[in-house]
Amino acid sequence: MCQCADASADLRLARGALARTRIEKNMANIKLSEEKVNIIKDICKSFGNQSGEVINVLHQVQGKFGYLPAEVQEVIAHELNMPVAKVYGIVSFYSFFTMEPKGEHPIDICLGTACYVRGAEKVLDAFARELNVQVGKCTPDGKFSLNTLRCVGACGLAPVAMIGEKVYGRLTPDMVPGIIAEYK
């Protein structure tokens, strides 16, 4: 028997489902707390670890964490036994899913038709300028995130913004600093 097999035995590396070693590593280490991993695993399990349920799983996990960072997608892919590229493909396809964390006070500007024609874009610009944050992103202190949506059913109040659960209507750009001040 060739001794090489014995040599490779030295290279045997401990393997646990979630504690794998990797020799040549280009990717950033995936780091996640055990608690979070368990939450994800439980959600996957509640859908029978079926890859066909990935959208439902993503929906629930985003419900728990507010967003779907890369490492969360890695765990989901592992649990559902599907390529992480496919999971990312789905996350990047549906605008509902986000890889950006939501702020403590998520700001959503309505860009529905009624709001849009009544100047929602200027309001959006004012929020972005005032918070110095891009649309879809979160401020570095984690307090505010800025997003857009289509219609909250309050067209009579156009243009409309929501901060958390609270609705602000008949907005003008000059009202924006005052509104933000309420949350500081």
Binding site: C2, Q3, R22, I30, E34
Partner: peptide
């Protein structure tokens, strides 16, 4: 053994649990 054989590495993705 020295020249014609080789060995393999674990190159799987690593998931660190904190």
């Amino acid at each position: 053994h020295e020249q014609l054989h080789t060995h393999y590495f674990d190159r799987s993705d690593k998931l660190e649990v904190t």
